[in-house]
Amino acid sequence: MFRITRRAAAIAAAALLLPVSVQALPVATADPAPGGARITNIEKVNDRWDKVTVYSPAMNKEIVNDVHKAPGAGAPTFYLLPGIDGGDNLDPGGSWAPGSKSWFGMTDIAGFFANKNVNVVSPLGGQFSWYTNWVNDPGKQYQTYMTQELPPLINAQYKANGRNAVGGLSSTGGTAVDYAVQAPGVYRAVGSYSGLLNPADNPSQVSMTLMGGGVSADNMWGPGGGPLWIAHDPSKNVEKLRGVAIYAAASATGDVGEVDRLPQNFGGNFSGGFIERIVAESTRVFADNAAAAGIPVTYVVRPNGSHTWGLFESEMQESWNTTIGPALGG
């Protein structure tokens, strides 16, 4: 579950993964964030694209983050979480460079945000972490990283205005929404792109996904369906999202469509379609619970799309135009 087929990903990446050269830059940053998080290196890919390495005290390791810089100071910041693979190719026989099966490698970040005054930041790594805090793995404390350590550093380094939004795809779609539950005020807008928004009701699906990486979901939030699962379930915490701009989308059918950007005569993306139907039902449950509580959600049911990067990119762009951009003043 929540895996993109190698063939589909390769096709989607073919026109986007171009060789780039990077130039290490001297690091002249503002003071470290509270707790000792700090920028340790910046590599310049081009005039608008930096690769920023951050030391995370919570996990005692360095994390590389792609940053598409706003054209001017005083801009908001839009964070995009990677999928279950952390931006790397997990399928055997693939030839992607590390970190290239990611938002900056698989979608046209530079083109879409070229004329938009916003910093776009996407962390790399964190395979099979759900991008949350694990109770039994100190090396997986990504909620702390994304809500406490990284944003202050980005705000200082790029002279951002402190208005933040976050979106996630597939396994991290629900996590992006959960950040607004767990850390009120950090993210004023959230987006779920074909994400699982009721994990407490689907512990077996989460467990199977994490088993693909050889890890146990019990080490994440404890036994499936327990108190921590409920605490991290957006569908069961909609009241805590009051005042947050929310976008949630999925394809109801899971059928292959033009949005997937697959070649003609590709056929059915059966595994992707199966996953998409699961997350579509999950998204519906979340939207229904939010509506019952009077929480506004931009809820979009796509007519087709089979859990591919083409679908995720289209959902992300739509979220910016309808929900996230307006919430950030973009």
Rank of each mutant, 00 (worst) to 15 (best):
T5C: 03
I11N: 06
A15M: 00
L18H: 12
L18P: 04
P19L: 05
P19S: 04
S21W: 11
A24T: 12
A30K: 12
A30F: 06
A33R: 12
P34R: 14
A37N: 10
T40P: 03
E43W: 12
R48M: 09
D50R: 15
D50T: 13
V52C: 07
T53A: 09
T53D: 11
M59N: 07
E62H: 08
A70W: 13
P71I: 02
P71E: 08
P71R: 08
G74I: 03
G74R: 11
D85G: 00
G87R: 03
G87F: 01
L90P: 00
L90G: 00
P92N: 06
G93Q: 06
K101W: 02
G105P: 11
G105T: 03
M106V: 03
G111A: 13
N117E: 06
V118G: 04
S122F: 09
P123N: 05
G126T: 00
Q127M: 00
F128L: 00
S129N: 02
W130Y: 04
T132M: 02
N133Q: 01
Q141P: 09
T144D: 11
P151F: 13
N161R: 04
G162V: 07
N164S: 08
V166S: 14
S170F: 00
Y179D: 12
A180I: 08
V181Q: 07
V181N: 10
G185H: 15
G185E: 15
G185T: 13
R188T: 15
G191R: 10
Y193N: 04
G195Q: 06
G195C: 02
N198D: 14
D201M: 04
Q205Y: 03
V206S: 02
M208Q: 09
G213T: 06
A217Q: 10
A217V: 01
N219T: 03
M220V: 09
G226M: 04
G226Q: 05
G226R: 08
D233Y: 04
P234E: 14
S235D: 10
S235Q: 09
K236H: 07
N237P: 03
E239L: 05
K240M: 04
G243Y: 11
G243N: 11
A248R: 13
A250P: 15
G254D: 11
G257N: 09
V259C: 03
R261P: 01
L262R: 15
P263N: 09
Q264H: 12
N265F: 14
F266S: 05
N269R: 14
F270Y: 15
G272P: 08
F274K: 12
F274M: 13
T283R: 10
F286W: 14
A287E: 11
D288G: 02
G294L: 05
I295C: 06
V297D: 15
V300F: 09
G305N: 12
S306H: 15
H307A: 01
H307D: 05
S314G: 07
E318D: 12
S319R: 08
W320M: 07
T323K: 08
T323Y: 10
L328I: 04
G330H: 05
